[in-house]
Amino acid sequence: MTTQGLQVNTVSLGQGARTWIRDDAFSVAPGEVLTIMGPSGSGKSSLLAAIAGTLGNVSVDLEPLTFVGDVRLHSQVITHLPAHQRGIGLVYQEALLFAHMTVAENLLFAVPQRMPRVERAATIQAALTEIELADFGDRDPGTLSGGQRARVAIMRALLAKPKAILLDEPFAQLDETLRAQMRAWVYAQVNARGIPAVLVTHDRRDIPASGRVHTLQREATHVG
């Protein structure tokens, strides 16, 4: 039997002797936004990194973070795949627009390079128009407002045509009116594309109407 959507089954997630998450499982249906909540330090961001496959980049001097478990996308195990082959988009709280590229180049970076040049340019222009930044293509991303940056970051993730998307507190740096608008827009995008989405947040108002919530407990187990 094949199950559609994203399934994450964590046996353990931790660093060295510390374990943050143990025996945890959840699944997200296509088009659904699942909200993950939990206290600070419960390993939410590391869990997203494990799903996206970027866990290896998180630590440098410290012991590596270790994830034991499996991640399935439409019933296929993707745990062994490197990040760039997983097709899982990731949006951080800081928009992380590349500082050495213009706004348009940031978006272009996500568009598949096989696409013909003219078509790529048209895609970028359409995307800029959709996020109401039609005239901002040549701007330095550093000159954008917080709301504008967040929109570019989310659009960039969507342009890569991800099969699932992970949102790590994407609204945390926006003011109240912007947050409401952004939520509605993002959830509509996820719904329209029919991709599973995982949202990590501290703010209960971010939970979509009738959306499911998955709560992580603070484990903080010390072994030895």
Binding site: N57, H84, R86, I88, G89, L96
Partner: peptide, 18 residues
């Protein structure tokens, strides 16, 4: 370092090999 590592991870989620 944190910023570059995040950007590097992000570029991978957009489909670029390491």
């Amino acid at each position: 370092r944190r910023r570059w590592q995040s950007e590097y991870g992000l570029a991978q989620t957009l489909g670029y090999p390491p």
